[in-house]
């Protein structure tokens, strides 16, 4: 790379960085909290049995419709989350935070599943927060009780 090209690259990177600085506040003004928009959900496995798991995460109150859907996309292959579990939940406009929980049923015992979480409004509009791909393993078969 020539010195001129290095200079062009530096200018381009600087321009992009500056543009991000200016764009960021405008996104926040659009009615979304920038921290909400950028935050990544950190789901936890509330409980898991041989066939059933509850996954929970908390975000800032996303607003929008009162009825929301907590969504978990999951599968046995981390690169192919081909199954979906949705649970309806209702937001409380007076609460600053929102707890999402999903009941994932009909799992196979003793199996590792990979998943990521998201949420959406009742009309299907996605909320901004999603998670990275996480995993959990169901218990062996014939266990009646959910592990806490």
């Amino acid at each position: 790379m020539t010195r001129l090209n290095r200079l062009r690259l530096a200018i381009a990177i600087s321009t992009m960085a500056l543009s991000l600085l200016f764009v960021q506040p405008r996104l926040a003004f659009a009615g979304e909290s920038s921290s909400t928009r950028l935050a990544s959900a950190t789901p936890v496995i509330e409980s898991v049995s041989d066939t059933l798991a509850f996954i929970r995460w908390t975000t800032q109150n996303p607003g929008g419709t009162i009825l929301h859907y907590a969504v978990v996309r999951y599968g046995k292959d981390p690169n192919n989350l081909n199954l979906t579990a949705e649970s309806p939940t209702r937001i409380n406009p007076g609460h600053s935070e929102m707890v999402f929980r999903v009941r994932v049923a009909n799992l196979k015992p003793g199996t590792t599943y990979y998943y990521k979480v998201s949420s959406e409004q009742a009309g299907g509009i996605s909320d901004p927060v999603t998670s990275a791909v996480n995993q959990f393993t169901t218990r062996p078969a014939n266990r009646m009780s959910a592990e806490k």
Partner: peptide, 11 residues
């Protein structure tokens, strides 16, 4: 009926 089970509650 497990369909559409509300998870605002439960825990």
């Amino acid at each position: 009926d497990p369909n559409n089970e509300n998870t605002t509650i439960g825990k």
